[in-house]
Amino acid sequence: MSETPPAQDADTSAPVLSIRDLTVRFGQAAPVLDGIDLDIGRGELLCVVGESGSGKSVTALAAMGLLPPAAQISATRMMLGDKAGDVDLAGLGERQLERLRGNRMAMVFQEPMTSLNPVMTIGRQIAEPLIRHHGLDAGEARTRALEMLRQVHVPAPEQRYAQYPHQLSGGLRQRVMIAMALVCRPALLIADEPTTALDVTIQSQILRLIDELRAELDTAVMFITHDLAVVSEIADRVAVIYAGRIVEEGRRAQIFEDPQHPYTLSLFASMPRLVAEDVSGGGRLAPIGGQVPAPGNMPAGCRFAPRCPFAVTRCMAEVPPLAAPAGSAGDGHRVACWRAPLEETLG
């Protein structure tokens, strides 16, 4: 994959998506998202990593304004900034959101079949947002949609244009989804596990495509995944999320060369490919004991503390702030752990 530097370096302008203190709760239980801060710059790819129930998809849905009405959402800032200006996403009604979705921000999901209309040709589905948002006539929209199909490397686009989703393989469907999402040139693309259901060879093609398009179109990408190897292939920056809080954040190199949080380390230690050559674990995987806490049963201090082998009394009682690790150059690497860096606190 190409080695484009993080957009922050290339472009000091305001981020495309900027979120501060995003909190989401359902009913009286503890919040499922608790104080999430995120920034994604132009052309930057941020990977949000975590396991099921960590809150990564809720974060994406909150940004897209797609959470169900029962969700109580609060944020001090939830800003989409693009060429058309800044929009405060938090204050928008459904109709205003509809004008943004598929236009200035778009989303692709793990299973393309759930978001493709089975009775509409794929060509019309790609052309439709152009007619709706940009007021193109049918002919212009068709030309642009065909162009987009070419751009996502769908072979024989003219023939595919008239086909229905069920006539396409899983890999092609995901390409069509990406074409649909990007046809209006949104400033922000949110991809929620877009390659998880695909075979490795197809996954590799789709990862390459996303990487290529965000460079070509300068799209900010929030890429949600549970797979650290995928993160390693495509991320500029990484946010590791656990039980509704970001526990560690940094550039790819910071997370993969200097992982600080015990949860980040535990995710690595659970990965078979790492253990294959790892001596200290004795060839044995090191799963994290226990389970992600339920919203009704969140620990008071660090939410990972009950499963953390390094936890001390303080971890159970006080929430650690997300801050630059001691001794770091303060260049964007942040960790929420009282015990980091481990080699120092453990003496």
Binding site: F256, E257, D258, P259, Q260, P262, L265, S266, F268, A269, D278, S280, G281, A286, P309, F310, P341, L342, E343, L346
Partner: peptide, 16 residues
């Protein structure tokens, strides 16, 4: 794998 990574992974295994 960086030395820092390896060291912390060792700490994790030991603690476990």
């Amino acid at each position: 794998m960086s030395p820092a990574f390896r060291r912390r992974l060792d700490l994790l295994h030991t603690a476990r």
